[in-house]
Design a protein around this nucleic acid. Sequence first.
DNA 1: CCTACATATCAACGTATGTTGAAACGTAGA
DNA 2: TCTACGTTTCAACATACGTTGATATGTAGG
Lengths: 119, 119
Amino acid sequence: MDERQALAAFAALGQEHRLRVVRALVTVGPDGLAAGVLAETVGIAGNNLSFHLKELSHAGLIASRREGKSVIYSAAYAGLSDLVQFLMRDCCQGRPEVCAPAVAALEASDCNTGETAHA
Amino acid sequence: MDERQALAAFAALGQEHRLRVVRALVTVGPDGLAAGVLAETVGIAGNNLSFHLKELSHAGLIASRREGKSVIYSAAYAGLSDLVQFLMRDCCQGRPEVCAPAVAALEASDCNTGETAHA
DNA sequence: CCTACATATCAACGTATGTTGAAACGTAGA
DNA sequence: TCTACGTTTCAACATACGTTGATATGTAGG
């Protein structure tokens, strides 16, 4: 992930409704959520949500698939992972003590205990 | 770090000049850089840089100290670390496979080889 | 084919954001 | 104290951004 992609990702996440969308999609898992459900969850109009979804899609943070009448959106875990790596690489440039606590906190939590856990 | 702080941090990093500032400050280490040097590095006017530095400072991503006539800015590693943790926690909610590659990439690189990563 | 439903697109508006130039502030040295 | 230097603040401007309402596309069922 280069600086330009990271810039787009940060800009995408730097907006209240879009951050809420990503958090909701990450939480719900790969099954994703329909646009209508997302609009209700985030609390904005459907057309407005479409605008933000396009932005997030361009940033590579979400993916979409059609299912009947609905369009299901889900988190693009690869893109999010790339962003984490970008942040860590930048942080680690010369100063590893930034990432160490993050990794430690991660390993202390329930999600990365040895082998990969599941939802 | 709550959602509102993360939002401010993402918004701060979602701007070309501000991202460049943070990267420059992280790279140079705790010694930091004077505002004038930063302005030259990033390629913007001093008054404009001040505007962005204030934004980054509010977001808790940089710190400043006066040294003679100059004001030295440096990366706020704690704030950056908090942001990494926020991203990882959100990512790990239900889907640990997001953070695993990031951690793996980190440990494969030169900045966390050995004891620093594990508590 | 026609209707109903779900989502996306478009134009228009108000507001926030980034940039610029002029001026003020704070610090150090003569 | 005066001047020079580095940085910040302020007002003004242009532009980008997010929101809204109306309209279009696409899909399933009768």
